[in-house]
Design a protein around this nucleic acid. Structure first.
Lengths: 250, 250
DNA sequence: TCATAATCGTTCACAAACATTCAAAAACAG
DNA sequence: CTGTTTTTGAATGTTTGTGAACGATTATGA
């Protein structure tokens, strides 16, 4: 099947809102629910989005998250809230680093119109950044097939020429003792370097990453602001520092 | 196939509206549905549009500005042939630079399975390269919005760390006196540098670029192999050198 | 935990869009 | 003017997109 006008419409809305409900699409397009479902199935098949219960969410190819069954519109909205809070920290005209990864990806729409200048190693971020009119620089480097992340000495070499106002990183786990961790050593190297080049560093990660430990250490917990949603008391205490931001999900 | 007045009319509407329905075209031109279908099939064959159920849509930004008269089925096939010949020069396991641009883009499928390692400054090339299983490095740099080319000191800086077996460049014109030229000075700088880092440099360009001169000079004519299709006698003589390759179209 | 409601995938019948064929009309060349 | 080629539009049967119906699955709140 090939792209129809309706498909474009869906993708446009999705790029704007990150997450859409089926009811919105039915109302917006005037098509039936069956048709919308079919569209979503098709668009998912070509990796443009990911279906979730009640709707769909935009897919950037960095999907390492193994099928956590709790994917739903509500869950995605929480992640969006984290992204919005993170982007809200950025002030007019700042120069920031945006890590490859899904959560940082979701920050992009919230950065539009601020005159932000972005450096990223996330290939999949670029299209969306440009679409939102954001001045964008790419680190070079080896293209990691699946994820579209740029890594290796070329990436770190290019990165080291910059200095950032803020730096936003993703992580696969955070833990009181082991700090922020991520599976891939090469990506960890990029993250670590980016952090060292920034006045302020933030890690964006939802509560499901709390207490998890992944293969490679990126930073100690206290050395970056953590932007996340609800945490249990023990974890709260562990991460408490002046830069930590907690997103309250009502 | 001849380019009719109706074809121009269709493309004009398409450029305006991005997507058109067949019914609109029938009404607008006064031609029958069969005829419109035929037109769309023909225009699709030369890559000016993409057919979708119920109408047609413009494929991608690169091609939008081209007019009907610039293209034909024959022309399209010639370009593919040029790309095939260019890619055929690459030997097993070589390290090459692939310039941003449509003609170099067409080389990608022919490079698959050769163990080629590619460095490119063309953002739009990357997906296709990865899809064909080709090891890919990206120069970093400023992302030029519409074209997706990476340019600027970051791009040239990253590039200068490499050495290539072969380098394939696109050009907007070639001329006995003024050499290979291209409109954008920033892109020209990247091309020039890439050429200087390669054992062998080739320019891929079809005969419609012969005698044309664009804003910025990249290289003198004799300093790179030219891969093109039929040329008139005067031009033939001018470009004659040991690396020039002419694609013979039957 | 269970009951209820919302969301989901599947099937089916119908309509819209499609490629293909063929003959008439128009353009062209000698 | 005559024979040939090209373009066109109608008719054909086929494929594809669509919406409604139904039972299965998944969230949610008591």
């Amino acid at each position: 099947m090939l792209t129809t006008e309706r498909h474009e419409w869906i993708m446009d809305l999705l790029r704007q809102k990150q997450t859409v409900k089926i009811s919105e699409l039915v109302e917006g397009t005037g098509a039936s629910e069956s048709t919308i479902r079919r569209d979503l199935t098709e668009l998912e098949a070509i990796n443009l989005l990911e279906r979730i219960h009640g709707g769909a969410t935009i897919r950037d190819r960095n999907i390492q998250e193994l099928s956590v069954s709790d994917k739903s519109v509500k869950n995605e909205q929480e992640k969006l809230q984290i992204a919005a809070v993170a982007a809200g920290l950025v002030e007019e005209g700042e120069f920031i680093f945006l890590d490859a990864g899904t959560t940082t990806f979701r920050m992009i729409p919230f950065l539009a119109g601020k005159g932000t200048v972005v450096v990223t190693n996330g290939l999949t971020h670029v299209d969306t950044l440009i679409d939102h009119g954001i001045t964008t620089y790419l680190t070079g480097g080896y293209v990691k097939g699946k994820t579209g992340a740029l890594v290796g000495p070329q990436a770190t070499g290019a990165l080291s020429e910059y200095r950032f106002d803020r730096c936003f990183l993703g992580a696969n786990g955070f833990h009181p003792e082991y700090g922020y961790t991520t599976p891939d050593p090469e990506e960890a190297a990029v993250k670590k370097l980016a952090a060292s080049l920034s006045r302020r560093t933030y890690v964006v990660a939802d509560h499901s990453k709390a207490g998890k430990v992944s293969f490679t250490k990126v930073l100690p917990l206290a050395s970056a602001g953590l932007i996340t949603d609800s945490l249990d008391a023990a974890m709260m205490e562990a991460v408490e520092n002046e830069t930590t931001v907690k997103v309250v999900t009502e």
